[in-house]
Each structure stands twice: as structure tokens, then as C-alpha cells.
Simulated assay, not measured.
Amino acid sequence: MVFVVGGGLCVIGQLLMDLTPLTPAHVLVLFVVLGGILSGVGLYQPLVDIAGAGATVPLLGFGHALVAGTIEDINSFGFLGIFSGALKATATGIMAAVVFGFFMSVLFNPKGKGG
């Protein structure tokens, strides 16, 4: 189920980019927001339970993590959980992206648009 769900989500994203005027940035934002909305109304967690990483690794999973972390911290800390939940739930992934992005930019010589 991991590969079926994860692959299906990727196919949907690719079709959106190929068949509509949406850019990759539009699809990224759409998927993160959609994952957050589906998580907020309780529809994304059952998919995570069935597909595991097939549902948490794609961009919808990031939106789900933001909302699920916020809800968890609101239940634990009340109003202050609004400000801490999303950051605590996604800090590892964000930090990994920043650190690996930095090291890749140091190790490789990126070329600008002009060549």
C-alpha cells in the first residue's frame, strides 16, 4: 500500500503539472494546504494508518504533520500550542533540508541561468 498510495499521489501531482497551467510551485502549495485541510477534518490520518510512508513522505504529509502537531500541542498546552505544535512536528525535516541544501551548495558549483 505504501507504493500504491505514494505513487498515486505523485501521479496526481504530475498530471496537475502536465495537464493544467499550474506550475510546480502551485502544486507544492496546493498539496501542503490540501494535506493540512484533510488532516484538520480527520480524513488524512486513516490514509496514513493504511499507507504509512506512502502518505507521510509526499507533500500532503507535510501539511498533515503541521496540522497534527498543532492539534497535539493545543491539547497539551492550550492556546500556546498554536505557536509551537507545527514547528516541533516538522523541525527535523526542515532542518535536514537546510543542512543538506547548504552542504550541496558548498560541494557542488551551481551554475546561473547564463551558463
Score class of each variant (00 low, 15 high):
G52T: 00
G69V: 04
N75M: 11
G85P: 10
V5R: 04
A25G: 08
L107Y: 11
A65V: 03
L9R: 00
S39P: 01
K88W: 09
A86T: 05
F103V: 15
I50R: 14
E72N: 14
M104E: 09
G69E: 07
A96K: 07
F3V: 15
V106L: 14
D73M: 15
T70Q: 10
L107I: 14
P46D: 04
G42D: 07
P21L: 11
H64S: 10
A25I: 13
G78V: 03
G93I: 05
V41W: 12
C10N: 09
T20A: 03
L60T: 13
V106N: 03
G81N: 02
L28C: 10
P46Y: 02
G13Q: 12
P21V: 11
V5S: 01
L60P: 01
K111H: 09
A55E: 03
I82F: 14
G40D: 08
Q14D: 11
L34R: 06
L107T: 10
V106P: 05
I71C: 02
S76W: 04
H26P: 03
D73I: 00
I71F: 00
M1C: 08
D73G: 03
L107K: 12
F108P: 00
G42Y: 11
L28S: 07
P21R: 13
M1L: 12
V2H: 03
T56Y: 03
A91G: 01
G101M: 01
Q45R: 15
Q14V: 14
G40H: 05
A53P: 02
L28Y: 08
V5I: 15
G8E: 02
